[in-house]
Amino acid sequence: MNPITLYHSILGKKIIMAVTGSFMLLFLLLHVGGNLKVFLPDPQPGMADINVYARFLRTMGEPLLPYGFALWGVRIILIVSVLLHITCAIQLAHRNARARPVKYKHAAYRETSYPARWMLISGLLMLCYIILHLAQFTFGWINPAAFNTPDVFGDLSRAFHRPFYIVIYLGAMGLLGLHLFHGAWSLFQTLGLDNPDRNRGLRLLAMVISIGLPATFALVPLSFAVGALGPAIPEATSAAMTGGN
């Protein structure tokens, strides 16, 4: 399959979007699996399970692979996916806008949904959210002084005791749900993996993913917010716990 042909064709761009979308979806499924580790008891006192997991992500493949290699591999795939997904989406949206220069007075839609028609909006908002999310928990740009990579639990705890972030994250999960509601079903259709016998199942799967995945993600900020995971951990504790590096 020639990637250039693929990129230059509308159907090809749709295929690219479906494939990159499914990479991102796959990543989210792994991500949410990791997140749930906040609910596990500490394997040793003063060491949150999620922090162990966070360290594993970096040391994965050692000594065969250098430190952080696998993580960066995944990150590169994701970055390329996001870029391709967005580029194609914008190009297609541009083409779609040109395809109907004069609009209907009131288009009477029968089958499409708001999530489907607002994919571009929900997608772009998601992009803003991802930047915020990375800035906050990956790069620590939001509050560099308090940011502590090894103590993921501490970072989460401090963030999700602040109503501002709780609202942002819950809102973002709502958007993610809307985007997935159409996107997850769409990828099967675009890749031609649908067929009449399994379409009902695929629709159901998309529905389950679009509700289940954001809901599971939302569990983390919600649990911190209601205090189920203890009070906010002060920065000093975090620093002490991990030896300050």
């Binding site: 779609n96 028609r117 675009t190």
Partner: peptide, 11 residues
């Protein structure tokens, strides 16, 4: 041709 792209809207 000047057609748009499929958005799987099913309209």
């Amino acid at each position: 041709e000047d057609f748009g792209a499929c958005g799987n809207h099913a309209e």
